[in-house]
Design a protein around this nucleic acid. Structure first.
Lengths: 217, 217
DNA sequence: CAAAAACTTGACTAGTTGGTCAAAATGCAG
DNA sequence: CTGCATTTTGACCAACTAGTCAAGTTTTTG
């Protein structure tokens, strides 16, 4: 026996057991909560293990490094996060396509604010773990959609507007409600939780942006 | 001698020496750099002391706790950060006033991106150190300006728009370029540093938002 | 149902980090 | 120039935390 390596979950390639599936999920859910609130450095493995209801060594059996959990989470999140952008249809009506996109983005910020904050935190700190993703996946997709928007502008279907800055504005505005939630609450107080607040937000954002880019005569 | 307290900088009330002034500044500058990049937890006292060119105990002579440096920085930054909002003139032309406000905010994000990131990081993590500031200072100011914008809308000088969401949109968009700088660079590449880029950004943001809120017939 | 594989954990280690302390060096008022 | 206050620092400590390990328990499989 020359093998001296320790056994880790998923050692057996291609094989994930039922227990592995359950526990990985428990860990990732707990970690998303913690990382999105306290950041990478601010979160301890013990915290995550506690929240996931298992011992620290057990957690480390599934993810040998803290960094692994973090990166896995980011990867899981990013694809989902980008999906709405990919759905913009070059053949559709420009205003309608952008309305749909903005609406989807707002809904995502409402339903997955932790994901938004996880991502925001990573980018804010220089995106050390995902800089490759940004250049290899995000940039090409944005370039593609920017070209579509530019064409729409050329055809007079949108007011003259830089497509990149338009996309940034949509990102910034929609994610603001997740990332700066505390600030929004401090200012708008009890309104935030109230029924209809989300619709009101979507309405306000859509109104300003869509009117801002509607073709002018 | 019953006094047993240790001596700390500024022990003598009302008296700051020349050396104190210099060193506090050195520390705060170094700390802004570090905190805005790595966050509170991600920054070590040693790092700050190194950057400030002094020993750790010496740094602690001026700021007995890491937290003190952080809070001092935030306080210093926040007032400055809010100043442009306070300048909105209720008697001025609405579109012009908002144009000026947006322009000032963009310029601040360009000239003090670290301050923007420091603040973003704090809010993102639940604003534990400044929740009081948000409710005691920020909210009243925003309420005041929101009332002005609401009046303008009532007078037909602006399209019907929720003033709070408008303010959030301006914040989100302008600060995006500082907070998500890495992402902006990943997508727009070498354009970012180029002369004229900042003007182009300001132009794009102003164009969309101002046209989005211009009164419609 | 027995053996192997997968899973779980208490106890531990090594490295990091916020903060202390006492003594030395420097600055400064008279 | 002298003596007191201010400033500076090397050495140190206690708390925390990522990750290890060996020994046990549970689950799966032939």
């Amino acid at each position: 026996m020359t093998r001296a390596t320790k056994k880790k979950a998923g050692e057996n390639p291609e094989k994930t057991t039922r227990i592995q599936e359950i526990n990985r999920r428990l860990i990732l859910d707990a970690a998303l909560d913690a990382f999105s609130t306290y950041g990478f450095r601010g979160t301890t493995i013990d915290q995550i293990a506690d929240k996931a209801g298992m011992s620290k060594p057990n957690l480390l059996y599934y993810f040998p490094r803290k960094q692994n959990i973090y990166v896995t989470l980011l990867e899981e999140t990013l694809e989902e996060w980008l999906a709405p952008l990919a759905e913009i249809d070059p053949e559709g009506d420009p205003i309608e396509q952008l309305r749909k996109y903005i609406t989807l983005k707002i809904r995502m910020s409402e339903s997955h604010p932790e994901a938004s904050r996880l991502f925001a935190n990573e980018v804010l700190h220089g995106a050390p773990a995902i800089s490759e993703f940004l250049s290899k996946h995000l940039k090409p997709l944005v370039d593609e959609k920017a070209a579509i928007i530019r064409r729409w502008v050329g055809e007079g279907k949108l007011a003259p507007v830089d497509p990149y800055h338009l996309i940034f504005m949509i990102w910034a505005t929609t994610q603001h409600y997740a990332d700066f939630d505390v600030q929004v609450r401090a200012i708008m107080g009890n309104q935030v939780g109230r029924p209809g607040f989300n619709e009101q937000t979507a309405q306000a954002v859509l109104s300003i942006i869509l009117n801002g880019i509607r073709p002018r005569l």
